[in-house]
Every structure is written in structure tokens, then in C-alpha cells.
Computed example of a mutant assay.
Amino acid sequence: MKPFLDVGEKFGKNSGRTTVITIANQKGGTGKTTTAYNLAYALSNEGKKVLLVDFDPQGNLSMCFGIEQPDQLQLSMFNVMNAIMSDEPLPPAEEYIHTHGNIDLIPSNIELSVAEINPSLGLLTINALAASDSVLIPVNPQPWSATGLTQLLRIIVKVKKCINPRISIEGILMTMCNTRTNLYKEAFRLVKVYYRETFHIFEVQIPLSVK
């Protein structure tokens, strides 16, 4: 996990209202942070107003926006969640929302890891899915990536059944792709075998690039 985007104005099938997208994969190193960062900028360049919520205790997305030491933040997503669950007033928005043009960011830091193990706050992934309209799943083309999605999909199904019936899956986004290698070809073949009949697999594939 797990940044998610709150996209204002008109976007996707929910025209005329805010669309909330979770970017999630239980496996690390699949490009979740990079996907959120670039998608936010692409949408903002089209005139959309975007709220990025960093839901990762490592704070990588926050660091992408110039917050070099997120663990030293006075206010972060942890404080927002803690205030809500404790039925306390939220701090002023300008004290925890960082603005970059059309993009607003609620940063995260290591304190958010407390929420991951605190039953009163619940699991971060479930909280994000409960608030979302859809899920975008980045997948790194490794042979075990296809089978590794099973746990996440089970969680999404449970959330849809018990908490958030409106949630859907935007699709699977292949990231860090070197299309010339046999490793990529086999991994992509497995993803299609497992999921092509059930989920949309985006035609656009993000190439492997250090930049």
C-alpha cells in the first residue's frame, strides 16, 4: 500500500463528483508510489484538482514532494486518523495539507505504522478501500506477481461485500517492463492467464527506466 487519490471535477465514470482511487498491491516494489506521483501530475496538467493521501508509514510519496524527513512532521495522516477515531476536532487543514499547484498532499510518516496494528483504527488497506470508488493495481513483471495478487483481491472482495459495495477494480497496470526479456514475456503471460477474463489489463505499460 498505498497511496490513494481524491480526484476532483470530472474524471472517469463518476462524472461530476469526486473520484477516489486506491493504488495498492500487497507486494512491495511494484511502482505504487511512482504511479501515484505521475498519475497525480498527469491529472493536474489536465486541470483536475487532486488530493494525494500517503498511506504508507515509510512516507515515500511524501518525500517525492520534497518532504525530506517525514518522521519529523508535526502533523501527518496519523494525526488526522487519530483525531477522527478519538472524536476530536481535526487540526486546521492548512497545517497538515501541503499544496503543489493543483495537487494537495496529506503526508505520512512512521507513526502511521501504529494504525496498522491498532484494532481501533483497523488495517490501512481496508480503510483506504472503504473510502474508495476503485482500485488501481500496479504489477511488476515477475513470475510470481500473478499469483501474488490473490490476497489483495480477496481483501477487495470482502470489502465490497461487507463495507463498500460501490468499489470496483480499475485494472492491472504493468510497471517496470522490459518487453525484450523472456522474464517479462512469461510474467505478462501469467498475468493474462490468471486475470484477463476477470479484470481489465491496461494496454499502456510503464517501461523499466532508472529515470
Rank of each mutant, 00 (worst) to 15 (best):
K32C: 01
S209W: 13
V159I: 12
L153N: 07
N79E: 12
A146R: 06
V193I: 13
N109E: 07
I169D: 04
T125G: 13
L121F: 15
T99V: 13
D54E: 07
E111D: 11
S113L: 14
A42N: 01
L121N: 07
M77L: 11
T198I: 09
M176N: 06
K2P: 05
K160C: 08
L43P: 01
N109R: 03
L61N: 00
M63T: 09
G171C: 11
K10D: 15
G66M: 05
N182S: 12
G59C: 02
Y194R: 08
A83H: 03
P138L: 06
M1D: 10
K27R: 05
V139E: 09
L105F: 02
N45A: 12
L183M: 08
D54F: 04
R166I: 13
N178I: 00
S108K: 00
R196I: 11
L190M: 06
V193L: 11
L43E: 01
K32S: 02
V135C: 10
Y96M: 03
V135F: 05
G28S: 04
L61V: 01
I169A: 06
K13G: 04
G122P: 13
I137H: 09
V50F: 01
T198P: 00
V191C: 06
T147G: 10
G31T: 04
M77H: 01
E88D: 11
I84S: 06
G8F: 04
C162H: 14
N109T: 07
N14Y: 14
N182H: 11
Y37T: 01
I84F: 05
R189M: 13
K2Q: 11
K2Y: 10
Q69K: 06
I169K: 07
K2N: 10
Q26K: 05
Q142T: 15
A130P: 09
I137P: 08
V7I: 15
L149N: 08
T22C: 08
G171L: 07
M81K: 07
I206N: 09
Y41H: 12
H200P: 07
